[in-house]
Nucleic acid binder design. Structure first.
Lengths: 129, 129
DNA sequence: CTAACTGCAAACAATTTGCATACCG
DNA sequence: CGGTATGCAAATTGTTTGCAGTTAG
């Protein structure tokens, strides 16, 4: 039951967009942006491809306040969500990631992937208060 | 715009159920269980209350494989999801939690709450393989 | 050539809403 | 009593599917 994926233009543009943007777009936002380059693309195609990309670990799906967002950055990192401005910020804290992986392994779990996300107030918003 | 919540029987039973169960039920599962005690309750009431409980931090909502689950345990902990048997296991690794909180704070973030969840194969399933 | 993919429209599941009634404080 | 919550049914949102035509490898 192995599927031989084809790199269609649609999939290529979607992936490129996810890899170049730093805003963690929703399916809708991916749609609006990809539509600029492929005007007749439909939401169904966006959904189908996002699902494929997530399943094949070329992108990550994350949930924030009930909405799904997508991230093309595969480097393990933490997502920080500001409760004020709603920005989703990437934090590449390698020591934290390592501590976490180590802990899980010494506890007897073989982990495949993980998600760490936290909410608070970002530096920008703290200053303005 | 402060709302004066009332502790209705429905809300009470839902919360009690979440606090006593260790399986991280979905809204549907909460519904099926609460219905035993309150036969004429509806899904709408379940959804309304789960939303309120999550917003007021009396329960936590987590997302696993596109489905939302609820957890009445407020103690900060990690969720481990077994890719084989699909169990959602709570891990109370205080050192990990502290390391994480410390790191975030020394990095200049004031964090309100966080979610850590990871996927892998649980001990039970590893033995059986 | 042919299996994988697309666009389109229709179907679907999960969640939310409007409203009249019930009930907590 | 007043405002919050409920049950019911209908509406809405986000996502998925079937199908005929298109395309990458």
């Amino acid at each position: 039951m192995v599927i031989n994926r084809r790199l269609t233009l649609q999939r290529k543009i979607i992936l490129e967009y996810l890899q170049n943007v730093k805003t963690h777009p929703t399916a809708e936002e991916v749609f609006n942006n990809v539509k600029i380059k492929i005007p007749k693309i439909t939401l169904a195609t966006i959904y189908r491809n996002l699902q494929i990309l997530a399943k094949e670990k070329q992108a990550e799906r994350l949930e924030v306040n009930g909405q799904f967002h997508f991230d093309g950055d595969l480097d393990p990192h933490i997502h920080f969500i500001c409760k004020n401005c709603q920005i989703i910020k990437d934090l590449f804290y390698d020591d934290l990631v390592h501590y976490f992986e180590k802990k899980m392994e010494t506890s007897g779990f073989s982990i495949k992937n993980f998600k760490i996300q936290c909410e608070g107030i970002c530096k920008n918003c703290t200053q303005e208060a």
